[in-house]
């Protein structure tokens, strides 16, 4: 029946609110609740079981005094910086090459992107095999006659992280290439026509006109790559197991080992809170640029 009184706003669109309950619960319990729980417990001396005995910043002091954590952080930075730069450069160059109205474009794109469909575990195991010093690339090159050739990143603590990097780039650069290609295709053909009429060389057009126009794509790519870097875990487990020794440890693995192997929950919570902090440092400026800027700017 038609109502003449304003209905209670709580019950208006009740079905929609009921349908959104899983989302609301996920947001409140998991994304907000669990995060706060972990951050709070990082200030306790929880070991085997979580308990609320606060010890201030003790866990963090211990964390930053542990060589394994310091190596993890160092690895994360090396891996992160290299993978960010390489993914962007490779992704963009490949996209630009594919954008030259070439033949076999679809085939090539499929080949470059297919590793992205594979899991990190599979990726890690593939490259573990290829980089195997006794039977992989190193031995093949030596058999060809270059007997002093040495390329054994997985057995050399100094360069092991680069061995992981090769696998990571192989798996993930296709995604960046696809994003960049979509970005390039989104650029008006008239821009190219205009620059050709003005006689600007192609590389200059890319560098000074196209790339600045693709800023949103780059921002998205950077956010994707960096948020992926922080999560690196499976790849290490499969490819190196953190070795040789502790040379390829990463923060995510440090957290997992603290929580589930060493039964040192407090350390795990502190380390994961540090990871969250890393992400916040990346995300907050991005969110500000993307949403705050838009509201004020346009």
């Amino acid at each position: 029946m038609a109502q003449s009184v304003r209905p209670n706003t709580l019950f208006r669109n009740l079905n929609a609110k009921i349908a959104a309950m899983p989302m609301i619960i996920t947001v409140l319990v998991i994304f907000v609740g669990c995060t706060i729980w972990t951050v709070v417990h990082s200030f306790t001396k929880s070991r085997m079981l979580p308990k609320l005995e606060f010890v201030g910043f003790d866990q963090y002091e211990r964390l930053w005094g542990t060589s394994r954590w310091l190596i993890s952080i160092e690895n994360l930075f090396i891996y992160g910086a290299c993978s960010l730069v390489l993914s962007l450069v490779i992704g963009f160059i490949l996209a630009a090459l594919l954008d030259q109205k070439i033949r076999f474009e679809n085939t090539l794109r499929s080949i470059i992107l297919f590793p992205f469909a594979l899991s990190f575990v599979v990726t890690g195991l593939i490259w573990q095999w290829i980089l195997n010093p006794d039977l992989g690339i190193q031995s093949v090159v030596r058999d060809l006659g270059w007997t002093s050739f040495a390329f054994d990143p997985l057995y050399n603590p100094d360069i092991v992280i680069y061995g992981v990097l090769i696998a990571g780039i192989w798996q993930g650069s296709g995604l960046i290439m696809v994003l960049m290609l979509a970005g390039l295709r989104g650029i008006d053909e008239d821009i190219w026509n205009a620059s050709r009429i003005d006689g600007i060389p192609k590389w200059k057009t890319y560098l000074f006109i196209v790339i600045p126009m693709m800023k949103p794509v780059f921002v998205t790519a950077i956010v994707l790559i960096t948020s992926g870097i922080v999560k690196v875990y499976d790849l290490i487990i499969a490819q190196t197991g953190g070795g040789p020794g502790i040379a390829s440890e990463v923060p995510a693995k440090y957290v997992m080992d603290s929580m589930f192997l060493k039964q040192n929950l407090g350390q795990g919570f502190a380390a994961s809170t540090m990871m969250l902090l890393c992400v916040l440092i990346i995300i907050i400026p991005y969110a500000y640029l993307e949403f705050g800027g838009r509201r004020n700017g346009k």
């Binding site: 029946m1 038609a2 109502q3 003449s4 009184v5 208006r12």
Partner: peptide
């Protein structure tokens, strides 16, 4: 659209808060 204030009558009935299909 839900209005902020006022009334809507259709065919002599107050339908301000009725569902679109009931109007």
């Amino acid at each position: 659209l839900d209005i902020s204030a006022g009334e809507i009558h259709i065919n002599g009935k107050n339908v301000t808060w009725a569902e679109p299909s009931e109007r």
